Amino acid sequence: MTLLLSVALFGIHSLMFYLLKINTDSYSYSLLELYGFFTPIAVFIIIVLIFVHRKNKDAVGYAFMALTCIQMAANYFMLHPMLQQNLRPQKINFFILFALFLAMETIITARILNNKQ
């Protein structure tokens, strides 16, 4: 589900950039690079949470918080070059993607936690 949603978001995002004629030549990372960064991390987090849920249902929330903190650290290192530049649209684009993937991970984690199996 996460992978399909990521592909759909990438298509919509690319289409928006194309229709709005947004020039991304000066961006530190292309859309493909950003989605290539966020998607595997999201898939990895969800796989780990499913594994944790099978082993110890009470630890899913803690695992989610720990993995999200690690993800935020990785995101900072990726964001750092953008902070040096004065390209506000690029920073907004990065944070929107971060928020979308974090929301996706949070919703799936909530579903895992609410699963009564």
Rank of each mutant, 00 (worst) to 15 (best):
A66P: 04
A66D: 08
L67C: 03
L67Q: 01
L67G: 02
L67Y: 00
L67R: 03
T68N: 07
T68F: 09
T68Y: 04
C69E: 11
C69G: 15
I70N: 09
I70G: 10
I70M: 11
Q71P: 11
M72W: 11
M72E: 11
A73R: 01
A73H: 01
A74Q: 08
A74I: 08
N75T: 10
N75K: 09
Y76C: 12
F77I: 09
F77A: 10
F77S: 10
F77T: 12
M78V: 15
M78C: 13
M78P: 10
M78E: 14
M78D: 11
M78Q: 13
M78I: 14
L79D: 08
L79E: 08
L79N: 04
L79A: 10
L79S: 06
H80K: 15
H80A: 15
H80W: 13
P81R: 03
P81V: 01
M82F: 05
M82P: 05
L83Q: 04
L83K: 01
Q84H: 09
Q84L: 12
Q84S: 12
Q85R: 13
Q85W: 11
Q85A: 15
N86K: 00
N86L: 04
N86H: 01
N86S: 04
L87I: 08
L87N: 09
L87Y: 03
L87W: 03
L87A: 06
P89R: 01
Q90R: 03
K91F: 14
K91C: 14
K91R: 15
I92S: 05
I92A: 07
I92H: 02
N93M: 13
N93E: 14
N93V: 10
F94Y: 07
F94D: 07
F95D: 06
F95G: 03
F95T: 03
F95R: 02
I96W: 01
F98I: 09
F98M: 13
F98Q: 12
A99Q: 04
A99S: 00
L100D: 12
L100V: 12
L102H: 04
L102I: 08
A103S: 11
M104S: 11
E105D: 12
E105M: 11
T106N: 09
I107T: 03
I108D: 09
I108N: 08
I108T: 10
T109W: 13
T109P: 04
T109K: 06
A110Y: 15
R111A: 10
R111Y: 12
I112C: 02
I112G: 00
L113F: 08
L113C: 05
L113K: 08
N114Y: 12
N114I: 10
N114F: 13
N114D: 12
N115A: 06
N115D: 05
N115F: 12
N115I: 01
K116R: 11
K116I: 07
K116A: 06
K116G: 06
Q117H: 15
Q117E: 15
